[in-house]
Simulated assay, not measured.
Amino acid sequence: MECSKQRPSLEFVESAFWCLGGDSLFPLFPLSSKGEEAIERKEDLSQRLHPPKRIEGGLGVKPLREWNETLLVKNLWRVFAHKDTLWSKWVNLEKLKGGSIWDAVYKCNDSWGWKCILDMRNKIQNHVVIDNGSYKWKKNDGSVVNYSTQQVWRDLRSNRVKVGWHHVIWFKGLEPKHAFIMWLATLHRLYTQDKMKSWMPQVPLLCPLCEKTNDSINHLFFQCEFSSCVWKDIKAKLIFRGLPYSLDSIVQRMAVYPFTKNIWNIVNRLVIAACVYFVWRERNARLFRHQKKEALKVGEDVQNYIRWKLLSLTVKNSSAIRKVADLWNMKWVNNRFKFV
């Protein structure tokens, strides 16, 4: 019996090689036309909700379309600047026949990738200048610099308004899963019951923690009777004991303070993110696995997590360090926190 092998489609091949760069034989191909259409709707919504830079309230992931265009510019630059790469030499000799890529026109049998590279000419024509016989990149502010992919990305991407709370969530030392849940909660993007109510208006939904009303971001963090007990016990161990029982207000309050390596700045942010994470985890455990913990036990989980995080810090002795050690039932020995 003869086995048949299915050849990969052109769309798959193009999408697989679009990210290859360096001195590779393959240029930075764009996604195929079908691939672009498939991601266009989701990407437009995603970019509005989650900007690429963390300082703009995003997750720090580059949008595929904008990054793809930036890499296409790299190929275009290699061709008209006559860079010493195999692919650019082939394009100039065989495809352009010694002509300029700025004068090249589409042909019926041109590949999709080549057409997209030519389309990038209109986007960068105001950024390309000749300085002392060599090509340079003109930034948005008018200054002229050497070409770099990073600078092209900065000038071509869509800039968004910076947020003041990014340092409350994104900082060294915070566990990624805590930062991710905290980020979603800050943006009100967690799937809480107030959102599900619009999908299933006929189904009665109650907060799994207090069983009195629908849960929502403001309810879960920390206006629910259950979560408010957790937050009340935990914030007694913070220097900012007057923090409110609303996550939005807490984030706004913390965003005012500049982020430094002060021990209280670190502990405060660790505690807020940990409370959000462990309350959300308890909510899901009750809802999907029918497992329950008392508020006191969830509070203990938060405290144990913070104490283990403190063990990883190297700190010098000070009054603030001694205060933190006292509040969290620890001691300071040789620039490290230790369990009592």
Rank of each mutant, 00 (worst) to 15 (best):
L31V: 07
E40A: 10
A16W: 03
F12W: 07
L31H: 06
I55Y: 12
F12H: 12
P63M: 03
P27A: 06
E43A: 07
P51E: 14
S15K: 02
S24P: 00
G57M: 05
K53M: 07
L20D: 06
E37H: 03
I55Q: 15
K34D: 13
E14F: 09
E40N: 03
V13Q: 11
E56N: 11
G60Y: 11
S33M: 05
P27C: 10
E36V: 02
S46I: 04
C19L: 10
L31R: 07
K42F: 06
L49Q: 06
K42G: 08
I55E: 15
A16P: 00
I55A: 14
G58L: 11
H50M: 15
P63H: 04
L20W: 02
E14L: 12
F17E: 11
I39M: 14
F26V: 08
L20I: 06
H50S: 14
L28W: 01
K53C: 08
L59E: 06
H50F: 15
P30H: 08
S24R: 01
G21K: 00
P63D: 11
S15H: 01
L28P: 00
V13S: 08
R41P: 01
P51S: 08
L20S: 05
F29R: 04
P51T: 13
S15L: 01
K42D: 14
W18D: 09
A16N: 04
L25P: 00
F26W: 05
E56Q: 13
L49T: 10
R48Y: 00
K34Y: 09
S32W: 01
G22D: 15
F26D: 03
E56L: 01
V13D: 07
S15W: 02
W18S: 09
S46V: 06
E14H: 11
H50E: 15
L45V: 10
G35H: 04
L20G: 03
P63W: 07
L64G: 08
S24V: 05
L31S: 08
I55M: 09
G21S: 14
D44A: 15
I55D: 15
D23F: 01
K34G: 10
F12L: 14
R54P: 04
S32M: 11
A38H: 11
S24T: 02
L59C: 13
I39D: 13
K62N: 12
V61G: 10
S24W: 01
K34C: 14
E40F: 07
S15N: 14
S32N: 10
I39V: 15
D23E: 08
G60L: 06
P63R: 05
A16C: 03
S32V: 12
S46R: 12
K34T: 12
L59K: 09
I39T: 14
F12M: 13
G57C: 04
A38S: 15
G57S: 11
L59R: 08
I55T: 09
V61E: 13
L31Y: 10
P51N: 04
P63F: 11
